[in-house]
Simulated assay, not measured.
Amino acid sequence: MAESTVDLAGFALATGPSLTRWVFQGREAAMQAACAAVGCTVPDMLGVAQAEGATALRLGPYEVLFLLEPAAAQGVAEAWASALSGLAHSLVEVTARQATLSVGGPRAAEVLGCLSPLDFAPASFAPGTATRTLLDKADGMIWRQAEDRFHLEVWTSFLPYVTAMLKSAAHDTRF
């Protein structure tokens, strides 16, 4: 997807980088092996762990979403096959299903709060936290990267809708 940016008075919205996405499900030993294969630790619940070009987002007790930059994605399937051999798990590539939106600026949390029931106060949803949520009527995932910067994962088919709703909320809240 071509990168595009919208800046509305303290709210920036851009399509995100090209990433390979994998959903992993498995118990602790398998989760440790899967994370080690990409060079990161197992994140805490709703937390994030990062390594060179790889991000692991713990979305459930037995679930991790891996976001891999192109260089890190090369050979990862083979690394996982070796690391997870003999361990019960599920590992599914969902790259084509999802797209990334980058949201930032001093009004980012306020605008996201118009679409999601989450409490975006830094004490409630601190940087380094990731979770699933609704974005108006669309399923999504939000990772708070910094106090004023968020990474959103949405299904590709909902991307135009979520983008339009974010722009509308940014416009409506700027006064």
Rank of each mutant, 00 (worst) to 15 (best):
M1G: 11
E3M: 08
T5C: 07
V6D: 14
V6F: 05
G10S: 05
L13S: 04
A14P: 03
L19R: 14
V23N: 05
G26D: 15
E28Y: 00
A29Y: 00
A29M: 07
Q32M: 09
C35M: 01
V38F: 11
C40L: 14
P43R: 10
P43T: 08
D44R: 08
L46V: 00
V48A: 04
Q50I: 01
Q50W: 00
A51K: 02
E52Y: 02
A54C: 02
A56C: 12
R58D: 07
Y62M: 04
F66I: 04
A71L: 04
A71N: 03
A73G: 10
A73Y: 07
Q74N: 02
G75H: 05
V76G: 05
V76F: 02
E78V: 01
E78W: 00
A79C: 10
W80T: 01
S82T: 07
L84P: 02
G86Y: 05
G86F: 02
A88R: 14
L91Y: 02
V92P: 00
E93Q: 13
E93R: 10
T95W: 11
T95Q: 14
R97S: 13
R97M: 10
L101A: 01
A109M: 10
A109C: 04
A109Y: 12
A109V: 03
E110M: 04
G113W: 04
G113E: 12
C114M: 15
C114P: 00
L115K: 10
S116H: 03
L118A: 14
D119Y: 06
P122N: 06
A123V: 08
A123W: 03
A123L: 11
G128L: 12
T129L: 10
T129M: 11
T129D: 03
T129V: 11
D136M: 11
G140D: 12
I142N: 04
W143Y: 15
R149K: 06
H151Q: 13
E153M: 14
P160S: 10
L166H: 11
S168T: 06
